[in-house]
Amino acid sequence: MGIITLLMNFVFVLVIYCFIFSIIRLIYMDIKSINYYISNSNGKHPYLKLINQREMLNFRIEETYLLTKECSIGRDAKSDIIIKDPFISSQHAQIVKKEGIYYIKDTGSKNGTFVNDNPLKIGFEWRLNNGDKIRLGQVEFLFVDILSKA
């Protein structure tokens, strides 16, 4: 009887602390993404902002991705932006910069890339404007480019 009660109490306390731990973990992720955003963006570079609620996705993802140079998106470890979404191909898309204008290109994805719900043909370069919504797999990004708006 005594052992069972002790064990029960132990499990109970454990559950509460697991909960606190998971909350702290989420808050930590939250703060980390803010620091990343503050330290890197001085308004000169456009960035991708996550539209989804990050907690609804089961893989590691940042709140913002800064586009300082051309970068590739995919599940592959060599990509610049690595997203381990099972619906994203290993080499999914690429963002290229030509004369200060940003374009997005689908590099042979299985489930397609969508800009404002328009599917992209493979290899076609779509010009990105401020406020465009980019959808890859389950993930949806907002393209934010403050300078190009002027």
């Binding site: 559950v15 697991c18 909960f19």
Partner: peptide
Amino acid sequence: FGILTYRKPINYIILLNLLAYLFIFYN
């Protein structure tokens, strides 16, 4: 498939409630 993951805090709340009322029922 990810509803029962250990990472979602809401699952701990559900678990805690289930455990607690089970203990009360038993004790």
